[in-house]
């Protein structure tokens, strides 16, 4: 049984043209690092919050979210409390927004242990010290006495990771945990998250807009567009042979750090807002392959595409799924680049 399981989850707000999440299914097993990649407005943060049973007020919810077997959709307060205090923890993008600026770091770390666990001050303090050491802070004894403003963003994010670990969760949800940080700090934070995840056998769900970061740190990747999962597979599969035109478009939009430097091939148009809806594939309007009469009529299901010839290094293909009518005809990056090379509309 997976640690985290989304089963056909839909979240719809009244007054919006389309659901925020539309039939999202994903799993994270214990000891597995999984990434959810998408651009702003794709629904990836709503997904992360749903894993804690946090849904937008007034939303109509369909499907199931299970954490360690417990279904959070329609769950009572006791069940939600149990999941949030003992099974799943979340790390957010901006550490300063999640910590009381007038209380010491030590208070932040011991508060939940003392309030919900009933721990003594001394025992909670010792635990906080142990956690600050585990996240690699240089001087944990001193940091316990410090205020948030005395720590840099990277150090404070480590404090937040330590805070997330106080509950000894089995599932760690990380919503853009390094987006506000410098690249060298990002590397350190990701190293800590991966080490903790491996050592403690945690399930880790990394929400990010950065497909390269996802591929560098996670085993499997889900790509989200307009509230749907459009493609999933191993990091290697997605980077070397993306099957969904959106995934290929993301890769074609990312300037490479090495190798040949051709003109970028942006995805034309802009991501679909919540006030827009498409009867067919939500990416059809931006897709260079879209076939009129098919793609704009019916929404494709997430399905296994026909196998393609892949380089020997990627021969061991995982459970790749793609939601595209034309997935069997589209074969990865090179084909995409050729199609997108026509300069006509792409920059508009």
């Amino acid at each position: 049984m997976p640690l985290l399981e989304f089963n056909d989850l839909s979240v719809a707000l009244p007054g919006m043209a389309r659901p925020i999440l539309n039939g999202v299914s994903l799993t994270v097993a214990a000891g597995e690092a999984v990434a959810l990649v998408g651009e702003s407005g794709s629904g990836k943060s709503v997904t992360a919050r749903a894993a804690l049973g946090l849904f937008p007020a007034g939303a109509a919810i369909g499907g199931h979210v299970r954490v360690d077997g417990a279904d959070l959709v329609g769950a009572d307060a006791g069940c939600l409390h149990e999941v949030r205090t003992g099974k799943a923890s979340m790390i957010f993008q901006d550490p300063r927004a999640g910590i009381n600026p007038v209380r010491r770091v030590g208070d932040f770390l011991t508060e939940s242990l003392r309030l919900t666990g009933g721990w003594s001050r001394a025992r909670a303090g010792a635990r906080a010290l142990e956690l600050l050491t585990a996240v690699g802070l240089p001087d944990p004894v001193r940091h316990l006495r410090q205020y948030p403003h005395e720590l840099s963003g990277g150090m404070l994010q480590r404090v937040m990771i330590a805070g997330a670990l106080t509950a000894e969760p089995r599932l760690l949800l990380c919503d853009e945990p390094t987006t506000a940080l410098d690249v060298t700090t990002q590397a350190e934070i990701m190293a800590i998250l991966r080490r903790l995840q491996r050592e403690r056998g945690l399930g880790l769900l990394l929400i990010t807009h950065d497909i390269d970061l996802a591929a560098a740190t996670c085993d499997r990747i889900y790509v989200m567009y307009a509230g749907r999962i459009v493609e999933t597979g191993t990091a290697t599969e997605l980077l070397t042979a993306p099957r969904h035109p959106y995934t290929a478009g993301l890769l074609g939009s990312t300037p490479p750090l090495d190798g040949p430097l051709g003109r970028l091939t942006p995805i034309r148009g802009v991501p679909m807002g919540l006030l827009e809806a498409a009867p067919g594939c939500s990416f059809a309007a931006r897709c260079p392959h879209a076939r009129p009469g098919l793609c704009d009529r019916t929404a494709p299901d997430l399905a296994r595409p026909a196998p393609v010839q892949v380089p020997a290094s990627t021969a061991q293909r995982g459970p790749a799924l793609v939601a595209c009518h034309l997935a069997d005809e589209i074969d990865g990056r090179p084909a995409m680049a050729a199609v997108c090379a026509s300069p006509s509309e792409e920059d508009r």
């Binding site: 690249v183 060298t184 990002q186 590397a187 190293a191 560098a216 740190t217 750090l257």
Partner: peptide, 21 residues
């Protein structure tokens, strides 16, 4: 060199970057 090594890519080793830093 450290900045370059910090850019995520396949085979990325963030542990090593922390040590180098």
């Amino acid at each position: 060199r450290l900045l370059l090594a910090s850019v995520p890519r396949p085979g990325w080793d963030p542990d090593a970057i922390g040590r180098r830093r």
